[in-house]
Amino acid sequence: MAADKVDPIHQFHINTLVPIHVGGYDLSFTNYALFMVIVVLLAGGGLYLATASRRVIPGRAQSIAEMCYEFSAAMLKDSAGNEGMRFFPFIFALFMFLLVANLVGMFPYFPTITSQIVITVTLALVVFFMVMIAGLVRHGLHFFKLFVPSGIPVVILPLVVAIEIISFFTRPVSHSVRLFANMLAGHITIKVFAGFVFSLGTLGALGIAGAILPLVMVIGLSALEILIAALQAYVFAMLACIYINDAIHPGH
C-alpha cells in the first residue's frame, strides 16, 4: 500500500482505454495514445488559432507561434542550409510535437509520451531512414562519401571509416535514448522526492518539518524539468537537422 503510493514508476503505466486487437497485435487506444491525440490537438490547434488572424503586428500568442516557426526555420537553415528547407515541415512538426509533448507531461497525472522509448526510437528511426533515403536519392552512391572524411592519411583511413560507419548506425540509439532517458529520469526524480514529502508527512510534526526540504527540491526539480522539456525537444530537432545536413552535403 505505502509502496504503491510512492511508486515512481506508476506514472509510466500504460492503460488500455479502448481495446483494439487486429491480427494478434494489441493496437488498443491507450492513455498514451489519448495524450498523443491531445498533444497534436494542442499543438495544431494552438498554432492555428494563434496565427489565424494573420496580423501584421502580432499579438502575444501569434508572436509565440511565429517565434517557434522562425526558431525552427533558423535551426534548420543554420545546420542544413537553404537546400535543407525542403525538410522544414517535418522539422517544425517534430519540434512542436516534442515540445508540446514534453511540456504536457509536466502536468501532474499526465503521461509523458516521450518517456516511452518506443516513441523516441520510432521518431529517431524515421529521421534515420529519411536521411538515408534522401541522401541516396540525392547523391546516389556518393552518399557513402559520408563515411570517408577527406584529408585523412590512407594508413588510418580504414579505422576512421569503421568509426564513421559505427557512429552513423548508432545514431538512432543515441538520438532516441537521449530524449527518453532525460524525460524518464526527470519524472522519476520528481516523483521520488514527492514520495519523500508524502512519507515524511505521515510521521507527525517532526516529519512535516522534515518534509519541507524535499518539497523545495520538488519545486526546484519541476522548474528544471520544464527547462529540460524544452531543451530536449530542441536537442532532438537540432540533431535531426544535423543529420539532414549529412543527407544534403555528405562530403565532410
Binding site: 500504460i14 493496437l27 498514451y32 498523443m36 498533444v39 527518453f180
Partner: peptide, 19 residues
Amino acid sequence: PPFDPQFFPSQILWLAITF
C-alpha cells in the same frame, strides 16, 4: 512499462497516426 513490448504495436500505430 517503457520496456514492455506488449504495447509497442499500439504505441507505434498511434504515434504514426497522430504524428
